[in-house]
C-alpha cells in the first residue's frame, strides 16, 4: 500500500523507490517553473494521481512517462489558471487521457488551439531540416529504430547515430523557435 502526505512525501514506496525519486524530480522541476509553494501542491497532485488512479503501474518504464505526462498537463493547467484569474476549473487528467484515447483529442479548445499551432510550427520546422538531419528525422518518423537507422545510413556505430540525432534535435529546436517557439 502506498500513500502520499500533504507535502507529497511517499510513505510507502514501490520496491525500487521509483515514486520517491519521481517526487524529488517533480518537485525540483515544478519549483524551477512555478515556485516552491505551488511546487509542493503540484507534486502532491501528481503523486496522488499516480498512487490512486494508477496503482497497477509499478515499473519504471510505465511510471516515468506517465508522471511526465501528468506533470506537463498539470503545469500547463496551472499556467492557464494563473493567467485566467478567477477561473479555477480544469478538466480532470483522467478525462483528458480518456478523451485522447477515444480519439477526440484535445477537447479543450485552448489545448486544441495550442496543438494546432504546435503542429503547424513543427511541420514548418521539420521541412527546413536538410542533409543528414532530414534523413535521420525521416527514418525516425517512419518508425525505424536507431539500430536500423545506423544500418540504413551506414553509420560507423550506433553512438554516431545518437550524436547525429542529438545535434539534429538541437537544430530542430532552433527552427521551432524561429517558427514561433515551443
Amino acid at each position: 500500500m502506498t500513500s502520499v502526505d500533504r507535502t507529497g512525501s511517499v510513505k510507502t514506496v514501490a520496491a525500487d523507490g521509483v515514486l520517491e525519486r519521481l517526487r524529488v524530480r517533480i518537485r525540483a522541476f515544478a519549483a524551477s517553473r512555478v515556485g516552491m509553494d505551488a511546487a509542493d501542491d503540484l507534486t502532491q497532485d501528481v503523486l496522488l494521481l499516480l498512487v490512486t488512479k494508477y496503482p497497477d503501474k509499478t515499473e519504471l518504464e510505465d511510471l516515468v512517462p506517465l508522471a511526465i505526462r501528468i506533470v506537463q498537463f498539470k503545469m500547463s493547467s496551472f499556467t492557464r489558471k494563473r493567467v485566467r484569474r478567477g477561473e479555477h476549473v480544469q478538466p480532470d487528467f483522467d478525462t483528458v487521457v480518456a478523451t485522447r484515447q477515444s480519439d477526440d483529442q484535445w477537447a479543450d479548445p485552448e489545448s486544441q488551439a495550442e496543438r494546432r499551432q504546435l503542429r503547424a510550427r513543427f511541420r514548418q520546422a521539420v521541412r527546413q531540416l536538410d542533409g543528414r538531419c532530414r534523413n535521420v528525422f525521416r527514418l525516425k518518423l517512419e518508425g525505424r529504430s536507431f539500430a536500423e537507422i545506423r544500418t540504413e545510413m551506414g553509420a560507423p556505430s550506433i553512438n554516431a547515430v545518437y550524436l547525429w540525432d542529438h545535434r539534429c534535435r538541437h537544430k530542430l529546436k532552433a527552427l521551432l523557435e524561429e517558427a514561433g517557439g515551443r
Partner: peptide
C-alpha cells in the same frame, strides 16, 4: 522530457 511532452503527444 517534460518539455518534450507536447511534441510526444503531437507525434
Amino acid at each position: 522530457l517534460v518539455d518534450e511532452q507536447p511534441l510526444y503527444d503531437l507525434l
